[in-house]
Amino acid sequence: MKRSKRSAIDRRQTIDAYVCISPWLIGFLIFTIMPISFTIYYSFTRWTIMEPPVWIGLKNYIFMFTKDPIFWQSLKVTSLYVVMSLPIIIIFGLLLALLLNLKIRGMNLYRTLFYIPAVISGVSVAMLWTWLLQPDVGMVNTLLDLVGIKGPGWFWDPVWALPSVASMSVWKVGGSAVIYLAGLQNIPPQLYEAARIDGAGRRQAFFKITIPLLTPTLFFQLIIQMIECFKVFTEAFVITKGGPLKATYFYLLYFYEEGFQHFNTGYASALILVLVTVIMGMTVFVNYTSKRWVYYAGEDRAS
């Protein structure tokens, strides 16, 4: 008796849930499943976009894993970029958000100012960075000169190119800070109040209240920014063209050149599916660990 009632509730919930997600589901079928099934098909073919595709089975994938050093190079470079760039965005974004969450006069203005770099689209920012990091006359090396350090060649040095591109992420923290800012609003102030009465210091409050209650936002940031980092493209496309010596030959750059410049589009389809699989694997992994460190106030207690 109890069981059947439970299942009736479940059924009703299921129906409601599917009604609710139906807009996304329809969009997913039309805007993702439909095009991506073409991509999956093309990945098993030779295809130049212009001529009809020719079925070649797994050859694209076999070539990629056994004969293509550029594939491995771009995967390596991209992973290194993620490792360098992700912490910058996650940590600096949080610090900036904490700063912007202070209640002082003129905060509206500050918040807007800090948002500016996020507003400017790729090419202008790239152009600016080439000027800032220009080895001979750029602002950064001029400043380094003043303190007696000979600055490196930045984008034009095989060793420094990748860190230089990664450091451009600093400008993106404005965008990531906004999301933290929204997350911070979900922390009930009473908790701090209570902590203070219990004699907890600010540092303790930060680590015992702010961070745990912010974990859902952190989790979101981690996944989203990881995906974005894997998709790094514009910086390399505009500034370094993947060089020098393929030090910044990112995965999407390789995909783009294969697919749209060399018209090796079947292979490019295979490339992108491998990347999606890699990111998906990372996401599942992060999601798996999340059970240990992400705290939801509204967790479904029944499950």
């Binding site: 299921t14 996304w24 805007f31 439909m34 995909f255 389809s269 992108i272 998906m280 479904d300």
Partner: peptide
Amino acid sequence: RFRFPGKKVLFLLVISTMMIPLQTKLIPL
């Protein structure tokens, strides 16, 4: 908020659609 069959897979799919660059979908769309 809801519990329903396929939720975890569907949610993973929501996230995974963000991974696909637009260029791959242009021609069919």
